[in-house]
């Protein structure tokens, strides 16, 4: 699986929410795009990930 451009391996089927928790992302403060499609926050728990997915995980930072 690719996460923010980095290749990583996931062993088992895992929900997006679990993945974010395990990896140390703040799920409340992130937005996620899977394979180019935005995953609404309310679907984080039911959205299952597989090894060929591409994720973009983004958050707010300071900027003009």
């Amino acid at each position: 699986m690719y996460v923010n451009g980095q290749e990583i391996t996931i062993k088992n089927k895992i929900s997006l929410n679990e993945f974010l928790k395990n990896e140390g992302y703040d799920a409340q403060r992130t937005a996620v795009e899977k394979n180019g499609v935005i995953i609404p926050k309310k679907s984080f728990e039911t959205e299952m990930l597989s090894d060929n997915d591409k994720l973009e995980i983004v958050c707010f930072v300071g900027g003009g």
């Binding site: 990896e23 992130t30 958050c59 707010f60 930072v61 300071g62």
Partner: peptide, 17 residues
């Protein structure tokens, strides 16, 4: 105030919000 959107880091770094 404006904000930018960037790839998130792992490890619970402090958030501007």
């Amino acid at each position: 105030a404006t904000l930018a959107l960037r790839r998130a880091n792992t490890g619970g770094k402090e958030n501007i919000l």
